[in-house]
Design a protein around this nucleic acid. Structure first.
Length: 552
DNA sequence: TTGCAGTCAATATC
DNA sequence: GATATTGACTGCAA
């Protein structure tokens, strides 16, 4: 009966208690083959050990995150190769060790990368899988991910960034060597980590890897070695190619996809990257504001009017929604941590980030923030409607320059921002032909895309929506204050509740939540008001469209 | 079929 | 040269 219930109505990980997670861990182990023996000791003596191990496993990861170093526990060599039929308890145990060891299990050798077998030590058995994981460690990672306690993704990335920066290590090297990801992904991950509970198993993997890496006392040295080796290899390549007077190919490790065949095809295969013009983006954003989930027909129209492929429009919406969502997460986290510790820690990290980084986008985030009203819900409800709701809020952000990043660009718009700002400012967006900017920029591929888009976008009725954002501006963090409470849920709330102690230190956002708000009170009030209107509109929209549980 | 999470990889910026 | 941004793609789930 329990099984049936569990299989048909599994609770989300974050809602489970330690005990409640156990069955899932078992299932995961089973799926991984670790419990294949079919002799899973349900109850009985074994149960004890199993549980014990499982629980104990939490520490390694957490510790690290906290700053442990405490017990580098250098357990012998890493060779607890699971694989072999071992009892679940054993397997778990081995994992624990794995994490604790100053292990550096992950190494990469992505294609031509010179990575050399750098530290053959760790890799015992199995040849590495395509990814940087070495043999069994790949398996272990997955298991670790499955059983890992909630990790402070923000804290982890923060530390990683610090370590990388302090040691002058690049994201590319780190990503390819430690995470098995490309530079762009690493950058994105470090800049916009999603909260643990919002991550899928796969999405958690990089964080577990990072945590393991942070726990490795020799992490930096190892990377440095890699760096050196890479340099050497590069020099060698260069030398040889030069001496051979051969036009050396791009340093890109000469991936030979082209092998065998002529290198030509490669070029042809390359699709030129589509780069949307600012006007086009504006138009799309505007359309998004009115309808975050446009119908195929609308997409079609948009594509036509903007002279883009429908797939491009579709992709754009997907990406935009998802990125806005992420911005939201970050804001929540940052807000949380800010409140708590002021800037202390890593000045660079947070502040730097917040401001400059995604500027325009962060602003998007901003918009996102406003979504907050819904967003919270959105986040919570996973996408769906909530977002829709949120969306309306979106106002175009003022893309570009720094200032906007700043706090109170509100009243006074900035050049381009102006347009956008205008929109917001100008209540009821619909009235005024939305795209004043179009012209400004000059000859856009599309005559008046924005307008077109706007037009295209149904939305109609709730123009209100558009206007949504009152003078709000305060793009980023709008929601903070007000919404925070509700929004936060995901990220911190649950966590905090669950494991206060560790989490606290890990996540660094204690109950301070409320406290920090004090900072920009004025703004917050405004935003709060903003939220109200947003909520109002959302509810309206809700009634009209889909049923949702609006939780504000 | 649709939406989303994760990524890649080409570009843009710094 | 390193990092940030972003359009596109893959795989999965509902």
């Amino acid at each position: 009966g329990s099984v049936s219930d569990m299989l048909s109505r599994p609770k989300p990980w974050s809602k489970l208690t330690q005990k409640g997670r156990e069955p899932f861990i078992r299932m995961q182990l089973w799926l991984n083959g670790e419990l294949g023996q079919g002799v899973l000791p349900v109850q009985g003596q074994q149960q004890g050990p199993v549980l014990h191990s499982v629980t104990s496993l939490q520490d390694p990861l957490q510790q690290g995150c906290v700053s442990s170093e405490s017990t580098p526990k250098t357990s012998a060599s890493c060779s607890p190769a699971p694989e072999s039929p071992m009892s679940s308890s054993e397997s778990v145990k081995s994992l624990t060790e794995l994490v604790q060891q100053p292990c550096p299990p992950i190494e990469t050798s992505k294609d031509g990368k010179p990575p050399e077998p750098s530290d053959p030590p760790a890799s015992d058995s199995q040849p590495a899988t395509p990814l940087p994981l070495s043999g069994h460690s790949a398996l272990s990672i997955q298991e670790l991910v499955a059983m890992s306690p909630e990790l402070d993704t923000y804290g982890i990335t923060k530390r990683v960034k610090e370590v990388l920066t302090d040691n002058n290590l690049g994201q590319r090297l780190f990503g390819e060597t430690i995470l098995g990801l490309t530079q762009g992904s690493v950058s994105d991950l470090l800049a916009r980590p999603k909260p643990w509970h919002k991550l899928s198993l796969k999405g958690r993997e990089p964080f577990v890897r990072m945590q393991l890496w942070l726990n490795d006392p020799n992490n930096v040295e190892k990377l440095m070695d890699m760096k050196r080796m890479e340099k050497k290899a590069y020099m060698k390549r260069r030398h040889s190619s030069v001496s051979d007077s051969q036009p050396c190919e791009p340093p890109s490790v000469g991936i030979d996809y082209s092998q065998g065949a002529s290198p030509q095809p490669q070029h042809q295969l390359k699709k030129p990257r589509v780069v949307l013009a600012p006007e086009e983006k504006e138009a799309l954003k505007r359309a998004y504001q009115q309808k975050p989930y446009p119908s195929p027909k609308t997409i079609e129209e948009l594509a036509t009017q903007l002279n883009l492929k429908t797939s491009t429009v579709i992709n754009w919406f997907h990406n935009y929604r998802s990125r806005i969502r992420r911005e939201l997460f970050i804001e929540e986290i940052q807000a949380g941590s800010q409140g708590q510790a002021g800037a202390s820690d890593s000045p660079s990290a947070r502040s730097g980030r917040a401001a400059p980084s995604s500027e325009g986008d962060s602003c998007d985030g901003v918009e996102a923030s406003e979504e907050s009203g819904g967003p919270a819900a959105a986040a919570k409800s996973q996408g769906g409607p909530a977002e829709t709701a949120a969306a309306p809020e979106e106002r175009e952000e003022a893309p570009r320059p720094a200032e906007k990043a700043e706090p109170p660009p509100s009243g006074t718009p900035v050049p381009d921002a102006a347009a956008a700002a205008a929109d917001e400012g100008r209540p009821r967006a619909p009235p005024p032909p939305p795209p004043p900017e179009g012209p400004a920029d000059g000859p856009g591929p599309v005559p008046n895309p924005a307008a077109a888009a706007a037009a295209a976008a149904p939305a109609a009725g709730e123009d209100a929506a558009t206007s949504a954002a009152p003078p709000g501006e305060g793009p980023c963090r709008a929601r903070d204050g007000a919404d925070r409470s509700s929004a936060l849920p995901s990220t911190s709330a649950p966590a905090a509740v669950r494991r206060p102690s560790s989490l606290q230190s890990l996540f660094g956002l204690p109950e301070a939540v409320g406290a920090r708000d004090s900072r920009d009170n004025p703004l917050r009030k405004k935003k709060a008001a903003n939220l109200n209107s947003i909520i109002h509109r959302l509810e309206k929209a809700a009634s009209r469209e889909e049923p949702i549980e609006w939780e504000f």
